[in-house]
Each structure stands twice: as structure tokens, then as C-alpha cells.
Amino acid sequence: MSSLAVADPVLLDFAADVGPEGRVAVAGGRTRWGLGGELRSDTRVLAAPTGIVAYAASEMTVQVRAGTPVAELDAALAEHGQRCALPARGGTVGGAVAVGENVVDQLGRGRLRDAVLQVRYVSAEGDVVTGGGPVVKNVTGYNLPKLMTGSLGTLGLLVELILRTNPIPAASRWLAAEDVDPAAVEAALYAPGAVLWDGATTWVLLEGHGPDLASESNKLASFGVFTEVDGPPELPPHRWSLTPEEAADFSRGAFVSSIGVGTVWADSAQKSLPDGPGVAAVAARIKKNFDPTGRLNPGRTAGC
């Protein structure tokens, strides 16, 4: 139906740039440019369109073009007392979704992939395709937003997203203590925004209503002496994906573990295991179905 087709000329112009042929990729802030393998050198690199299209603060959703810097989005949301689950590390909204990494305070803001309500991307054929929907709850059809999140642009080039936003809590406070059991701390708190641990120091982000922060702080006092700090520690460059139990037991080099989550930032890279043959076959079929000629982000594979 033509009335459903995307009419935004900005998106259509971008789709025309992508066209139906030739190797092509999109660069955002290039903060994770090396992920998934090296891009073939003969690839045309485009920039995605920018701008916040619609922000319905009372709906807690925002429609934003993929090239928009996350910092710009954060600033717009903050004006209405809201935030989102995208990491602010100098990159773009589309880049953050294509990479799919979560924020350091994931326990508070939620997982990035749960915040992506609708994706628009330019397909290998050069069409603008929509997956998901604009509302906060939706099971209509197959879940293209999930498939696109973290796919490193190998199935389609993200051009616009609708994201779920969240209210910024009334109060929040980072606290830190030495030599406490971080897993016990995380288990004792009801809803911390983050619990981080570097092998010696435990950082806790408390969020919520002021009086609740006071009672949660009291709980912390039973574990050790927590003092207020400015924020989370500096994170080492390499990101490991472990189980919460493994993360709470990490001991290799300089690191920061996200307790209760399983992410570890370390000074060495995680050795990644290849997918099993069954999973690899599904992933390969999907790649072939979405990008039969392999023109999107050639050289990259999601998961390497």
C-alpha cells in the first residue's frame, strides 16, 4: 500500500545514495569501527541522516534518525526529564543500535535491545524497510528490530529508529567502598542502577525516590564503609561477555565487572568462540536472504 510507504524525503534521499548496487557501509562516530572484522577497502562509506523527527515525551518514545549523535539525543531527552538505554561514548544513535552494546548502568536503564521499538533501514535492494512499530508494546509480525540490533549493519543500513525512553529518577547517587562482597551487595539491594567491581573497590549507583535512597544506603552500611563518589570508574577498553557469576569472580589484569549483569571491561580482549554449526547455518541463511550479494558492510560479520 502506497500510503504506508516511507515519505520522509531525507530517508528517501539516503536510500537513493545507497542504491541497489555496490559495496556500501555507514559510519557513525567510528567508536567501534573495528568490530566484526575489517571493512573491505573498496566499500563506499556513507553517513546516515541526522535529526530528531518526533519526540512524544508523554508517550516516552522518540523517533530519531540514525546519524544523530547520542549526546544530542540525550540532551533533548534530559530537557523533559528523560533518558534512554543508548551508551553515550561519542557515537551516533544508529551506530549504537547497530553495535548493540549496553550502557554501564544497564540495571537502571535497561538493555539497549529492549528499547528499540521500530527500525527503518535501507535494504540491500535500496528500499526503505520498516520493522516493529511506534508503540511501546507490539507483537505484530516478526521481530526485525531485534534482528537488526547488534547486526553491525550487515543486514540493512539503519536510517531511523523509534526508541523507548525512561524518566530520569528523582534522585541518584554513586557510592564506593573497599573490600566488600560485590555480589552480596547486589543481591541485597532492590533495584540498583549499577554495581561495579574492580577486584578491590565496589561502586554502587543508587537511583529512585530520595527516601528510598536513604534506606538503601543504610543497607549498604552493613557491608562496609561506602562513601559518595562522582561516578563510575574509568573502564578498560575491552569488553567481555560473561555470566554474572563469572563476572563476580573475574581476576585477569585490570578490569571492571558489572555485577548482576556479566559484562567485564578488561585490558585484554576476550577470546571469542565461533557459533556452533546449527546457529552459523541460520545466521548464514539470514545474511543471504537479506543481502544476497554481500554488499552491506562487506568484510564484517556480526559476532566476530
Binding site: Y142, G150, S241, T243, G262, A283, I286
Partner: peptide, 15 residues
């Protein structure tokens, strides 16, 4: 684990 690598086939499968 926190962020399983590869395409989110789990997310695609649910629903």
C-alpha cells in the same frame, strides 16, 4: 552471558 555475540537470533525467535 551479558551480551551474547552474533545476530540476536534469540530475540528474533521469541514471538
Amino acid at each position: 552471558d551479558a551480551e551474547p555475540s552474533g545476530l540476536d537470533l534469540r530475540g528474533a525467535f521469541v514471538g
